[in-house]
Amino acid sequence: MKFIVILALVMTACLAAPVDDSSNAQILRYENDNIGIGGYRYAYETSDGVAREEEAELRNEGSENEALAVRGSITWTAPDGQVFTLNYIADENGFQPQGDHLPVAPVA
C-alpha cells in the first residue's frame, strides 16, 4: 500500500510541471539503467529545456516494511523564460518536494 501512495505522489509531482503542447521538443539525452524490482535510474533532457533525473531503490526488501525510496529532480523553463527546478524525495516518510518557487510554511 505504501508503494502505491508513494508512486501516486511521484506521479503528481511529474504532472505539476508545465507542459507546452505547441512544442515539438526533441530528446537530446536519455539514460535508463536497472529497471527491475530492486530499483531503477533514468535521466533525460529535451530541446525545450526540460531535464529530469530520478532514481529509486527498494528498501527493506521482503520485510513488512518494504518501501520504494525515490529521489529525483526536474527542471523546466516557464513561458516567461524563468527556469524552475523541483527536487524531491518520496519514501517511507512521504513526498518531500523542494524548490525555490514553492511556498514555505511560517516558523511557529
Rank of each mutant, 00 (worst) to 15 (best):
I27A: 12
A108M: 08
Q96C: 08
A67H: 08
A8D: 04
P18R: 02
A90W: 01
S47D: 10
M1E: 10
A13V: 08
E92D: 15
F95V: 05
Y30S: 15
V19N: 11
A25L: 09
Y88A: 01
V107F: 13
L15R: 07
E54V: 01
S73R: 15
N24Q: 15
G39M: 08
T12W: 06
L58R: 03
Y42P: 00
V10M: 01
G36E: 08
V50Q: 02
I74Y: 00
D100L: 10
S47A: 09
S63T: 15
S23K: 15
Y44G: 01
F84W: 14
A16M: 12
L58F: 01
L15P: 00
I89G: 06
I27N: 08
G72S: 01
A69H: 08
D100Q: 13
R41Q: 10
L15V: 09
T75A: 05
G99P: 01
A108D: 13
Y42T: 00
D100S: 13
E61M: 15
E57M: 14
G99N: 03
E45H: 07
G36F: 04
R52M: 09
L9T: 04
Y44A: 02
S73E: 13
D100E: 14
E92F: 11
S23F: 10
G36I: 04
P18D: 05
A69N: 04
I37H: 10
E54L: 03
G99H: 07
T77M: 15
L68R: 05
Y30T: 11
V19R: 09
D21H: 13
E66A: 06
N34P: 02
K2N: 09
N32C: 13
A25M: 09
P18E: 08
T12F: 06
G38Y: 07
V104D: 06
K2M: 10
N93H: 12
D80E: 01
S63K: 04
A69P: 03
N24M: 12
G72I: 00
I6Q: 00
S47N: 05
L58I: 06
T12C: 09
N24S: 15
S63E: 02
N24L: 13
E66D: 03
